[in-house]
Design a protein around this nucleic acid. Structure first.
Length: 280
DNA sequence: CACCATGTTCCTTG
DNA sequence: CCAAGGAACATGGT
């Protein structure tokens, strides 16, 4: 369940568990998840190496390995729509849609992804086009104005453009616009400085709060099914469903004004908003 | 069966 | 060349 906050929570979970561990073997059950790399390339680069750190860029997980001469020391993960990563005992049964397993000494680091939109690769070219992180000093109201200049595309669709701000996805785009009191159909190029300032603040506060919420959910990654997931009503997430102000709340009252939340489709993605609060 | 789903990339159209 | 829109990818849940 991966937008920036979910990936950040996963990184914080994995980092202390992976750092210092050595990769004994690599098993690839779905080679397409490595594209454009091959299983042998991945194994060649990873086997025998030790995790030095785990970090995040936008929705990508960055796995840094201790240097070994001049060879590559970074591989990246992306969860796509349905990807999950977790550690489990090496002799436990693998989940049905396991794509890649990195065998450590006593554990298996598992990447599973039913839809296989995710990636685990050595290639890092997709990182080069990403815009600033939400908390980057480069991201300012003026940066937003400049990026929106001459653009007739709606602000909701524009917020999903990873070159403007990196890490916002379909759920938090709706949440950010609601807090900003900006209509999702507002053409991005006609937003004024005040609105871009609201947007900038909401981007930071919504994502910060989502990360905080994620770190408070009792996760159980080892059991595979429940960890990390902000949806669903299973035991791991019960009591945490009320995290969204508008997303998924079609027909329910706006928490600010009581108006019924509406849903529209933009670029084939659902947008939820309050028609009373979001007149801007 | 129909429709929906957290994302990214590529192709086509204007 | 650029902006914008849509399809493709692939599977599961309702």
């Amino acid at each position: 369940m991966p937008e920036l906050p979910e990936v950040e929570v996963l990184v914080r979970h994995l980092a202390p568990r992976l750092v210092g561990k050595r990769i004994e073997g690599v098993r690839v059950l779905h080679p397409k998840l490595l594209r454009p790399n091959t299983p042998s390339e991945l194994a060649q680069a990873l086997v025998g190496r030790v995790f030095e750190s785990v970090s995040r860029r936008a929705k990508y997980l960055l796995f840094h390995l201790t240097p070994d001469g001049s060879s590559k020391c970074l591989f990246v993960g992306h969860l796509g729509m349905t990807g999950r990563m977790f550690l489990q005992p090496r002799d436990s049964q693998l989940p049905r849609h396991t794509g890649v397993i990195l065998d450590l000494s006593n554990e298996a680091f598992v990447f599973e992804d039913p839809r296989r939109f995710g990636r685990l690769q050595l290639d890092t070219t997709s990182l080069s086009t990403l815009g600033p992180e939400p908390w980057d000093d480069k991201l300012t109201p003026k940066w937003l104005i400049d990026r929106f200049l001459g653009c007739r595309q709606s602000i909701k669709v524009k917020l999903l453009d990873q070159t403007v701000v990196a890490g916002i996805g379909n759920i938090y785009a709706s949440e950010i616009l609601h807090r900003s009191r900006i209509s999702p159909v507002h053409p991005s190029g006609t937003l004024n400085l005040h609105q871009c300032s609201q947007l900038h603040q909401s981007i930071q506060s919504i994502l910060t709060e989502a990360i905080l919420t994620g770190t408070r959910i009792p996760l159980d990654f080892a059991r595979g099914i429940e960890g990390l997931f902000y949806f669903g009503t299973d035991s791991a997430t019960t009591g945490y469903e009320e995290r969204f102000s508008v997303y998924g709340r079609l027909g329910m009252p706006c928490l600010q004004c009581g108006t019924s939340i509406q849903k529209i489709v933009q670029s084939a993605r659902s947008t939820y908003y309050c028609p009373t609060c979001q007149l801007g």
